[in-house]
């Protein structure tokens, strides 16, 4: 009984209808939060006394870097759902998240590199966090490439699921080994367990933007999932009825 909502979400048709509404809500909410958070961070947060204005990249870099990692974990959750409950929709989510996750990882890498230029004097250093982010990008690329190489969608989904699960087990090991290998970077600027070292006037807009980017990611993933659902279910009656009505 308590699980009914879960199984309903597994129905492509119900998902398609609900996700349309959710996508709209997420899209507008993300837009408001991101415009507010970014303007706040860019114009109203105080200047960092060490890094000057270049630190304002943080309002994009940190949320995007969080997302890059969180989306891999989300993909792993989808893989578990796919294998345990054989829910096709989890595979759709995996496919959508892989692309969006790669985009966010690339954005985190590029914004980190650009931030590095004024801070370290060079675009790229082999520092722990940049390196593990680069490896994360390769992991995402592997998932995308594997799906593209296998024609049968069911088979591709399961192969990607195996890869993602193996990847998520290895990810912490990779992260710690890379950290051990090199610890040059400034310590993480926002940890959930500690009180951040930044003043509130700096981290409140950061929090707004983190929330904004998470919701934006949900918006993008839902949008992508709807398109994939429609594509995969193109022979289903409900899709034909839906398109015929329009």
């Amino acid at each position: 009984m308590g699980w009914r909502w879960f199984h309903q979400w597994g129905s492509p048709r119900l998902f398609y209808e609900r996700a349309g509404r959710w996508q709209l809500v997420c899209g507008w909410l993300a837009l408001i939060l991101l415009v507010a958070g970014s303007l706040w961070g860019l114009g109203f947060a105080p200047v960092d006394y060490q890094q000057g204005n270049s630190y304002r990249i943080i309002y994009l870099h940190v949320p995007v870097a969080f997302l890059a990692q969180a989306m891999y974990a989300a993909m792993a959750v989808c893989a578990v759902v796919l294998f345990v409950w054989k829910m096709k929709l989890a595979d759709v989510a995996m496919q959508a998240i892989a692309v969006m996750g790669f985009a966010f990882t690339a954005l985190a890498l590029i914004s980190g590199a650009v931030w590095g230029k004024p801070t370290w004097g060079t675009y790229w250093v082999w520092d722990a966090r940049l390196t593990s982010m680069l490896i994360l990008a390769f992991l995402y690329l592997g998932v995308i490439g594997l799906r593209a190489a296998i024609q049968d969608p069911d088979q591709a989904g399961k192969a990607c699921g195996i890869l993602v699960l193996v990847g998520v087990v290895n990810l912490p090991i990779i992260k710690y080994s890379v950290e051990w290998w090199n610890t040059l970077h400034q310590p993480a600027s926002l940890k959930l367990t500690e009180k951040p070292a930044m003043p509130a006037s700096m981290w409140v807009p950061l929090l707004v933007n983190i929330l904004g980017y998470y919701i934006a990611a949900a918006y993008l993933v839902l949008g992508s999932m709807r398109a994939i659902v429609l594509e995969r279910e193109r022979r289903a009656t409900w899709v034909k009825e839906l398109v015929g009505r329009a």
């Binding site: 390769f138 690329l141 592997g142 998932v143 192969a159 290998w181």
Partner: peptide, 28 residues
């Protein structure tokens, strides 16, 4: 993982290489 696809090329290698990182680091 790439058994079933005829046009995988070196995909199997590309997919697994990132997982070698801890091994390479420890060996180094």
């Amino acid at each position: 993982l790439t058994l079933g696809s005829s046009r995988s090329g070196i995909l199997g290698v590309l997919v697994m290489m990132p997982l070698f990182v801890p091994v390479v680091i420890l060996a180094a």
